[in-house]
Write a protein that binds this DNA or RNA. Sequence first.
DNA 1: CGTTCGTTTGAATCCCATCAATTGTGGTGG
DNA 2: CCACCACAATTGATGGGATTCAAACGAACG
Lengths: 172, 172
Amino acid sequence: LRQIVSLHNPGEALDLQQLLLDVADHSLRMLTGGEVATVGHRVLLDLIARRPEVGSAIFKATLIEGSIFREWVLNVGRRDARTRIAHFLCEFYVRLRKSPWVEAEGFDLPMTQEQLADVTGLTPVHINRTLKGLEKEGLIRCSRRSIALVSWRGLQEAGQFDGRYLHLGQAA
Amino acid sequence: LRQIVSLHNPGEALDLQQLLLDVADHSLRMLTGGEVATVGHRVLLDLIARRPEVGSAIFKATLIEGSIFREWVLNVGRRDARTRIAHFLCEFYVRLRKSPWVEAEGFDLPMTQEQLADVTGLTPVHINRTLKGLEKEGLIRCSRRSIALVSWRGLQEAGQFDGRYLHLGQAA
DNA sequence: CGTTCGTTTGAATCCCATCAATTGTGGTGG
DNA sequence: CCACCACAATTGATGGGATTCAAACGAACG
């Protein structure tokens, strides 16, 4: 059994922990195809030394990530399955639309229900149940590996979603 | 209903988000008496500008905090009540003993069962049940607002605890 | 008159037992 | 990988009682 603790959109810097921390406490995996660019520690540390603004921006991004972690703890610790899933869908949607690297046409979630379960700390079966429920309520529509928003407003309410913790517009 | 997302020992720097982030997404509260020293943004930013090592140390502390957040998501999302509580007790114990500001005599948890519930995402009643269970198993002993370790080894196993995510000895 | 010492009171906290709801398990088929 | 079902287990909800602790009060005594 696995717990997914973080998701990233194309264009985001990843795994900054490696810069200063020795032991890795998690692993990375791509949900869809794509390219990955790597930057060596030495190079990045030099850049930060010469351009403090870069360091500041990276620090800010890390603080925002921390804020998102706190919200995930709350989400997984204190909300029931329906609220929890709705909240996650809201977060994913907002972050996706805000990413300048992603064509924000429709809303497509490139995850299996099992992966959704690993994000929310539930079982795949219960994900299925609850997703069906949200569909019956008219908030979303699901087909194979794709979830479409029917009522954005409704989903926000169902998920008690307030996106301020994402600190958008401060993306350093 | 509330979710506690972080605990700190005396001597630790707190709430670094405020340095660079506008909106506060959480609040602070002390469990025991004590003193708080505040450092102004301006002062701290100036210090970092003149002494890059300080900035680096703060950044590292923030990364470690992020690592702890990830572990909490896992703990709350994927472990049952017994394992979850045991894991939290282990983390608290290790961090307490490692803190140079705390006399590491016995093990005393200055929290009510309700606060413990807010940490683990359970109800106070279930905390009570599970604590009694751990006591019956001979892993801990509880009296009013105080939990004593009986079998550290056993508690580690019960909580599937591996403290590497705490990145001790790297406390910058 | 002020001090000392019990008593009362009330607020937290803990504990326990019952019942109900959410969530997990296992299995089948598409 | 998704959908669905029946059943089981974990966890939550509610209510009541026991315990601790401290503040408030009052009576006896110097």
